[in-house]
Design a protein around this nucleic acid. Sequence first.
RNA 1: CGGGGCGUAGCGUAGUGGCUAGCGCGCCUGCUUUGGGAGCAGGAGAUCGGGAGUUCGAAUCUCCCCGCCCCGACCA
Length: 594
Amino acid sequence: MKSILKGVSVQYRMSELFLRTLRENPADAEVASHSLLIRAGYLRRAASGGYTWLPLGLMVLQKVTEIVREEMNKAGFQEVHFPALLPREPYEATNRWTEYGPALFRLQDRRGADYLLAPTHEEMFTLLVKDLYSSYKDLPLSLYQIQTKYRDEARPRAGLLRGREFIMKDSYSFDLDDEGLVVSYQKHRDAYQKVFERLVIDYVIVSAQSGAMGGSASEEFLAPADAGEDTYVETEGGAANVEAIQIKPAQSISITDLPAAQVHDTPDTATIEALVNFCNQNESLKRSNQWTAADTLKNVLMRLVSQDGTTSVLAIGIPGDREVDMRRLEAAVYPEIVTPFTDEDFAKYPTLVKGYIGPDALGIKSKSKIEYLVDPRVVSGTSWITGANRTGKHVFGLVMGRDFNPDGQIDVADVRIGDECVVPAGKVIRLARGIEVGHIFQLGRKYAQALDLKVLNENGEQVVVTMGSYGIGVTRAVAVIAEQHHDERGLRWPRTVTPADVHLVIAGKDEALAIAANQLADQLNAQRLSVLIDDRVGVSVGVKFNDAELIGIPTVVVIGKKYAEGLVEVRDRFTGAVDDVLLSELVAKVKQLH
RNA sequence: CGGGGCGUAGCGUAGUGGCUAGCGCGCCUGCUUUGGGAGCAGGAGAUCGGGAGUUCGAAUCUCCCCGCCCCGACCA
């Protein structure tokens, strides 16, 4: 493109930048970060879940990466770099070659040997440390890398938010004992807080399930956003992923003085709603205060498939006004997989009557031998309307601890505001969605054990090392920043990650403007402030302003009609403030904004 | 993997059996214009996702395949 500048050097010129902004939102982008990053020319989709970084995008990615790297180094962690393409054997040793399932990209080399594209690198880090270290004196140690990861996601979505190829910073800590692990964990936690502060990502730290990696203590860094895939709860006492919360069990009640259970005809009441309506309309069942779904006990059947392929059936008893939260259930039964209980499955259990299943037919000691677990609200002395195991019949006043005894508890009902929790302590005051940008957890000895990573302790004994594992989604963080910092006009990069410090718009075709703009750019460069200069010829100012707002560099300087009076305009993309500044004072003004 | 939707030029789209596939943006040439996505004139750009079929005739109907997006189950 023609430039109004001749033979001058500024950092980036719009006339030359490999960039094409789009006026309209791409049809396939739903979330703001995705749509804006494409429209503003930061990214192009190259494959399902794979994106090409264009010059502007790469500048942001590099800044984000550098902030992560700096904070890791400051914390005393050392950077290494593994191949993404790895042989099968180490993953076989930890059983993850099979355990990781279809999300693992597997491939073969020309000789037919199995390889994988690493989804995480626990095995390699463990083996590396084993290779070089063998004494307690070498510990503690934390290593990290910033690496491209591969996961064959069933459903890549929302641009950078969930890709099949993405960049992750993963760290691993190695300690002699549990106390050391706690210290290493805390160091990572502190470093992560600094990273997210510098990235200007709004986040909450929530208790988490450690999930597929195994291990115990675990927290997630969630960036609150409607586009997020995780749900978390906040209580007076803290925050947790819904998968990790624990509902406070109800107080048990004395069972003496409770009326005996009675079976009643309740025709056509296979759903809780129908049952409650029937109870409130039937003369003999009516009571002064209306029956509600919470008075009923709903028994839900699920089929569980274990890793070796064997299946079992689980019955879950929850108050009728609640639903089983599939995410919580999946987390609770992990590593078993939950599948629906079908009509064919029903056929195998003649004692179960669909729509009228009651506790009598459930439990490992019953005829069905189906394990029966109940919600923590279903405790001894609570009385329920529930199925009588006969079509069109329910039993009223069935008392837990007197009339039935389940095999145990399971806490998988949906969570609501006001629910009392043990973890995190207190009443739920907020339920929100978040994007997981970081996850830290105490892995323990799973990998060290499997790969035989031991060191000699002070007494000359072999001791298995204990590990922590810590991740930051680097490319995801870019999307999160875009998600959290934009308005209807476009992106608004925090100054720590902006692709350039100043967007200098030449608003006019007078050559004097171009010369002055160039001088300003040089002055800014001299102060280590990078400049993207819009030197395009034949492009109307409206287009230039709109592009500047879309691209989202936080400080926009306009040199145009007021140049004759020795003034330029400084716009703050965050506050919307517009100031006229003397040319001689521009650098000071820009520095002040930074 | 289940459910839903979609695939027409770089982007956004019209076109549900009939002529040379239309429009807006973007792109190229010329002139004009220059503080909020300019105007006029001319132009380039499409295997209508792919394959097979039905038909005198297919972007349009049928089948198969591929790809994309959304919702659900997994994760940084």
